[in-house]
Computed example of a mutant assay.
Amino acid sequence: MLERIVPSGELLFGSAHHFTQDRAGALKAGTLNIRIKDFVTWINDEAATKDLTGQSIPDDPHGPINTSRFRRTLAWHIARRPGGLVALAIQYGHMRTVLDARTSSGYGTRSRGGIHTVLDVESALAAADTAARLRDLLAAGERISGPAAQRALTAAAHVPRFEGRIVPRTFVHKARDYLARDGIVLFDNPDALLICAFKRDNALCEPDPGANSPRQYDCRSGCANTVRTDTHARLLRARADELGRLADRLPPPVGRRLRSNADRLRVAADTHDSSAQTAEAPR
């Protein structure tokens, strides 16, 4: 909705587009807190008027809902993109995370150690979400392919489903144990249109020794950790068609490279179609 309200290339919460007294830049925290409070009031008034009491927002026992309460929500969205954990570290000011041991578990701290708690928890939750989505797709009849398909089936069959909830400090230990299961932790890579069943010894992205997640920004074809579903195959063909249309409008040298990439994507989709099996099929 914000992307439709705000002109392309400008801040989604830019003060110029939200009828506010803030003079420049993004809306200030105080203004946003007032907007959130007014929004909750509006929802409750609408629910009462339309006799939808089950959709009202009750008073929060932890205090008013304000911008400081959304820090983990933002982390959730950032961490679930390829390279998102790097962006997460930058966003929260932990530029030197790789230089420090895991000496801190305080979520709010800006010390070099504190970010590791966030990274572990968000990585584990994202991986569990990926496994749960794969389980749902397989239950709906989608097929699976790839050298790591059997490991992915094992991960999907045993994953707990993580719903929205408060994540206690003690959860970080469970997250680290979950990520330590080398070979059966699944990482979605929407840019590469695949799932990585991460196993350090097989990874072509050359992860650091002891790493518990792949370098998703350096995903390489032919990796033994690759998993694809019918949905991935459809998206591969859609992207190939998009590259073909783009190639028609560009100079010949660039167009040839794009068509070559499109052909490679179609080959990957064809490979999936020829080798994919259902979850119930013998492997």
Score class of each variant (00 low, 15 high):
45 D>N: 08
46 E>C: 08
47 A>Y: 00
47 A>G: 05
47 A>S: 04
48 A>Y: 04
49 T>V: 04
49 T>C: 01
50 K>N: 14
50 K>S: 12
51 D>N: 11
51 D>M: 07
51 D>T: 06
52 L>E: 14
53 T>S: 09
53 T>V: 05
54 G>L: 05
56 S>D: 13
56 S>Q: 13
59 D>N: 04
60 D>T: 05
60 D>V: 04
61 P>T: 08
61 P>A: 07
62 H>M: 11
63 G>W: 08
63 G>S: 10
64 P>D: 14
65 I>V: 10
65 I>G: 00
66 N>K: 09
67 T>F: 06
67 T>I: 09
69 R>E: 13
69 R>C: 15
70 F>A: 07
71 R>C: 00
71 R>W: 00
73 T>V: 12
73 T>G: 07
74 L>H: 08
74 L>E: 11
75 A>F: 01
75 A>S: 14
76 W>R: 15
76 W>I: 02
76 W>V: 02
77 H>T: 14
77 H>K: 14
82 P>A: 12
83 G>Y: 08
84 G>T: 12
85 L>R: 15
85 L>F: 14
86 V>D: 15
86 V>C: 06
87 A>G: 09
89 A>R: 07
90 I>S: 10
90 I>Q: 13
90 I>G: 14
91 Q>D: 11
93 G>N: 02
93 G>P: 00
94 H>G: 09
94 H>M: 10
95 M>Y: 15
95 M>A: 12
95 M>Q: 08
95 M>V: 15
95 M>E: 12
96 R>P: 02
97 T>N: 10
97 T>W: 06
98 V>Y: 07
99 L>N: 15
101 A>P: 05
102 R>V: 10
102 R>S: 07
102 R>H: 15
102 R>I: 10
102 R>G: 03
103 T>Q: 10
103 T>W: 04
103 T>N: 11
104 S>V: 01
106 G>F: 00
106 G>Y: 02
107 Y>Q: 12
108 G>C: 02
108 G>Y: 01
108 G>H: 03
108 G>Q: 06
108 G>L: 00
108 G>W: 01
109 T>Q: 11
110 R>Y: 05
110 R>H: 14
111 S>V: 01
113 G>L: 01
113 G>M: 00
115 I>T: 02
117 T>Q: 01
117 T>R: 08
117 T>D: 00
118 V>F: 02
118 V>K: 01
118 V>R: 02
121 V>F: 10
121 V>P: 09
122 E>D: 13
123 S>V: 05
123 S>A: 15
124 A>F: 01
125 L>R: 07
125 L>I: 15
125 L>Y: 00
126 A>K: 03
126 A>E: 08
127 A>R: 07
128 A>K: 04
128 A>G: 01
129 D>W: 03
130 T>Q: 06
131 A>P: 02
132 A>F: 06
133 R>W: 03
134 L>H: 03
135 R>I: 03
136 D>Q: 13
137 L>D: 14
137 L>H: 11
137 L>N: 10
139 A>Y: 09
139 A>S: 15
140 A>E: 08
141 G>F: 06
142 E>S: 03
143 R>A: 11
143 R>P: 04
143 R>E: 10
144 I>A: 11
144 I>S: 11
145 S>P: 01
145 S>Q: 05
145 S>H: 02
147 P>T: 05
148 A>D: 05
148 A>G: 07
149 A>T: 10
149 A>N: 11
150 Q>T: 14
150 Q>P: 01
151 R>Q: 09
152 A>S: 07
154 T>G: 09
154 T>C: 08
154 T>K: 12
154 T>I: 11
154 T>N: 08
